[in-house]
């Protein structure tokens, strides 16, 4: 690595965030990392070097996010890579998940991420450089049974990232959305995954699917260390991808979705194309 980069990573006390922070510090990079609880974060990272800035942040609050970004700039002078990694999963049907549970998931997965982007952009524009990496999910590309709201939040992340890439291109800023499949992180443990409190008996297919899913905990095919490595690798490229899927499972699910779309395009082509005013 030719030059130390400054990283700003949210949701760093576990999962991909933690793997990234550790690998980056080992490589001598400068890392500001946010968590709801810095004590947990410091204990998890186990690195007290001056290259590490742990930050206690409530991502739903613009003030809190802004103060963390200003602290990062004050300490490291710049921000090169922003990784919006914080997020959690919520399971249940749309009918079962309350308005409050639903909004809670958007609070972190979408509005928190928007707060970071809104407040870090002045710095990246001033530098005329930077790379924003938003961690979505394969559920942000293909929705599945029992994860409607989680899928909605992650689809939202994919959508806003696609547009952001066009909007900030003129400033020399790169943008990537990462869509991981199943990785052996703490994602499927109760501290990361919330299930609908009011469950409706009728939704047997969801319960079966969730039970199968939860049994996967500890057996997920993806290695989080390799995922972190892949994410670090794309920041070294001159032309990084806009979409980066991680995991063969993610790849296969995306291909299935594309196949379905091709079929649906053909099935309704005539109807789709017959919308214009008569000339």
């Amino acid at each position: 690595m030719n030059k130390q980069k400054v990283w700003y990573i949210t949701g760093a006390s576990k999962g991909f965030g933690l793997s990234l922070v550790k690998q980056l510090l080992n490589a001598g990079e400068l890392v500001a990392a946010t968590s709801r609880n810095t004590n947990e974060l410091i204990a998890a990272v186990g690195n007290t070097s001056d290259n590490f800035l742990p930050l206690q942040v409530d991502l739903g609050s613009e003030d809190s996010v802004n103060s963390s970004i200003q602290s990062t700039i004050q300490k490291f002078n710049r921000i090169d890579v922003v990784i919006n990694n914080a997020g959690y999963g919520i399971g249940g049907s749309i009918e079962e998940l309350t308005d409050t549970e639903t909004r809670g998931n958007f609070e972190v997965n979408v509005f928190g991420l928007l707060n970071v982007i809104r407040l870090v952009m002045p710095q990246l524009r001033a530098q005329k450089s930077g790379h924003i990496i938003n961690i979505a999910s394969i559920a942000g590309i293909a929705g599945g049974i029992g994860w409607s709201i989680y899928a909605a939040t992650k689809f939202a992340v994919v959508g806003l990232t696609e547009v952001l890439a066009l909007d900030v291109k003129e400033f020399g800023i790169n943008v990537t959305v990462v869509a991981p499949g199943a990785f052996r992180t703490s994602f499927l443990t109760p501290e990361s995954l919330i299930m609908a409190k009011d469950q409706i008996e009728d939704y047997t297919a969801i319960r079966e699917s969730h039970n199968k899913f939860l049994k996967m905990d500890g057996h997920q095919s993806g290695d989080p260390e390799k995922a972190a490595e892949a994410i670090i690798n794309i920041t070294k490229l001159e032309n990084p991808p806009l979409h980066l899927l991680l995991g063969s499972d993610a790849y296969n699910r995306a291909m299935d979705k594309l196949d379905l779309l091709e079929k649906e395009f053909l099935a309704n082509e005539e109807l789709s194309k017959s919308m214009a005013y008569q000339g």
Partner: peptide, 8 residues
């Protein structure tokens, strides 16, 4: 988001 929750 609408597309995501509708697929599910």
């Amino acid at each position: 988001a609408v597309q995501g929750f509708t697929e599910s």
